[in-house]
Design a binder for these strands. Structure first.
Lengths: 155, 155
DNA sequence: CTTCTAAAGTCAACATAGTTGACATGAAGG
DNA sequence: CCTTCATGTCAACTATGTTGACTTTAGAAG
């Protein structure tokens, strides 16, 4: 577990642009960092990190999700899920119960403490997005989302 | 070194949206993945990965950069830089020379082979961006960049 | 020439995040 | 009862990063 991991400002490097799209590659990189920096810092102070947040984020939005479905969404192996998930259970940020009817799979749910941490971490990220969208206005925000969808689906 | 590492399609999860900005958090995540997926796949086939690409990318845009400056830009420790950098030197994708005047620091430069790989990997990323920008049009592209700048600088 | 300093390189120990492969357990269903 | 499927666990491995403690190299200052 990393300790506090202070900001690491890392000024956006002034690199010569060899291609017209180089600026956008760098913006994607620094944008991802910019969005996650404060959240990661907060998580580190809780003794957690990005994979823990990813688990909490998904479970918050899919209460009673089974382990198999979680693995699918996260895109990692069950062995890779194992350690962060167990930590969250030990720390009582998550509960795992067996449903009365469907005893075969365990159902994951956030505890109140888990909800609090998920909310605070995601709030840091949403705050960054909100500020950027406020600057850009509704049409800019919509354009950003349209471009990101095209990139994500890459089609 | 990971082997071919096939795509990992990972359909954008349909998660309930607890907050209005949740969609944008997920778009940032899947956008980053979408942009880097093909490039990472190409790099893996070359026995390389993202840190190697980052080094090649920076050196391509700052020929004759010194190690210390490279560490600054990449934001990692010199020990972390050491292994990927040595691999690139061994594979003759980079050269390190001492300048006639300034013998104190080594100057890094891409070889022809290094340039080829940097170009191909970055091309995969630029291709994704180009397609998205074509869909969005010039004004959409400009709006995307403005939002990303605000996120990256987080101010 | 000697000494100090800065850049670079190296070594060890560690943490985290992921992988495969192999195998154990526990509940549902035929 | 026996199979199957979801889950859990163990081991070994790779990769990427960290800190700390050096050494080496070469320019600069005395």
């Amino acid at each position: 577990m990393p300790k506090t991991s202070q900001a690491a400002g890392l000024h956006r490097a002034s690199l010569a642009k060899l291609h017209d799209l180089d600026a956008s590659l760098e913006l994607m990189y620094y944008g991802w960092r910019g969005m996650t920096l404060e959240a990661d810092d907060y998580l580190a102070r809780q003794g957690l990190s990005r994979p823990h947040h990813r688990i909490l984020y998904v479970v918050a939005r899919r209460p009673d999700i089974a382990i198999g479905a979680l693995i699918e969404i996260l895109g990692i192996s069950k062995q890779a899920l194992n350690r962060p998930l167990n930590l969250l259970l030990e720390r009582k940020l998550l509960t795992s119960t067996r449903a009365p009817e469907q005893h075969r799979s365990k159902l994951l749910r956030l505890t109140a403490a888990g909800q609090r941490i998920e909310q605070k971490a995601s709030d840091h990220e949403r705050k960054v997005m909100r500020r950027a969208f406020e600057r850009a206005g509704p049409s800019g925000a919509a354009a950003w989302m349209a471009v990101m969808e095209a990139i994500a689906d890459n089609n």
